[in-house]
């Protein structure tokens, strides 16, 4: 009774603001977009057939590759950081983890614009490179694929670090000592003991980074000069330019289904066998 009472607000909240919009998108995705905006509901699978246009499939494929690369880079950078904070941070631990969260205090858009200012032709980065004699002419740092990648890693790194931190924090250091007492090298100890036990954090962090990266549309526009189209941009265009809500909804549903599939595959492959082995 007590628990049911506490769950009522969140059920209403999610029902109103998550489930109903989701069902609306699903309904729209089978509708027909009118030429002059708006949508006629019905059962029209044509929107989904259009997703299979090689052009759009390529964009979706590219989106998944970019999201996967971003996840791997975030993991490669985030793991050592989380490890350092947990095991070497000592009394600075809380301060350090707070610093990881500081970027969340401002909006993603403002931070993305900050990168535009930093990387532009006469921005801080180019001025510094010229000052230290690395280059004479300003380099093309912005509106490149690398700038997009960098912006994405920057934006999503905290989503990787925080779950890793939470997983490692629970780690019982006596297990490390035990492994080393039994003759395991430090490297061996890490791969056979610490890393497997931090797997829940790795999985949670990867999912938290991968999903929003796959839906990203601001960073490719702002830092990539709109030279690359990601699925998020494609969906945004259907709603804001093409007046084609039905197709935009179909793309959204497809993206959600593919993401769900990818995550289930990932948890099966990486997740359960390792988790069960613990």
């Amino acid at each position: 009774m007590g628990l049911a009472g506490l769950l009522t607000p969140v059920t209403i909240w999610l029902g109103l603001f998550f489930l109903i919009p989701l069902l609306l998108i699903l309904a729209y995705s089978f509708g027909t977009s009118n030429v002059y905006g708006g949508i006629t509901l019905g059962f029209n699978p044509g929107n989904y057939l259009r997703v299979f246009d090689p052009l759009y499939l390529e964009i979706i494929g590219r989106t998944f590759v970019i999201a996967a690369i971003n996840t791997l880079i975030c993991l490669a950078l985030g793991y050592p950081l989380a490890y350092f904070i947990v095991f070497k941070g000592r009394r600075w631990r809380n301060v350090l983890i707070l610093l990881v969260m500081v970027p969340f205090w401002t909006s993603l858009l403002i931070r993305a614009y900050a990168w535009v200012v930093i990387l532009s032709g006469n921005g801080i980065a180019n001025k510094a490179l010229q000052f230290f004699g690395v280059t004479d002419e300003p380099l093309d740092l912005i509106f490149t694929t690398q700038a997009v990648m960098m912006g994405m890693v920057y934006s999503y790194l905290p989503f990787m670090v925080l779950p890793l931190y939470a997983a490692l924090e629970k780690f019982d250091t006596r297990l490390k000592e035990a492994a080393q007492d039994l003759g395991a090298s430090r490297w061996h100890t890490f791969w056979r003991v610490t890393f497997p036990l931090s797997m829940p954090g790795v999985i949670a962090g990867s999912i938290l980074v991968f999903i929003p990266s796959a839906g990203e549309f601001v960073i490719p526009d702002l830092l990539g000069g709109s030279r690359t189209v990601m699925t998020g941009n494609l969906i945004q265009n259907q709603f804001l330019q093409a007046r084609d809500w039905a197709f935009g909804s179909a793309l959204s549903v497809m993206l959600a289904v593919l993401l769900l599939g990818a995550i289930m595959f990932y948890i099966r492959r990486v997740g359960t066998d390792k988790l069960e082995g613990m």
Partner: peptide
């Protein structure tokens, strides 16, 4: 009118 979609598709194709 209807050609709007074709315009959108072309611009998407060019950009990607």
């Amino acid at each position: 009118g209807e050609t709007t979609r074709e315009y959108e598709r072309i611009f998407t194709e060019v950009k990607s």
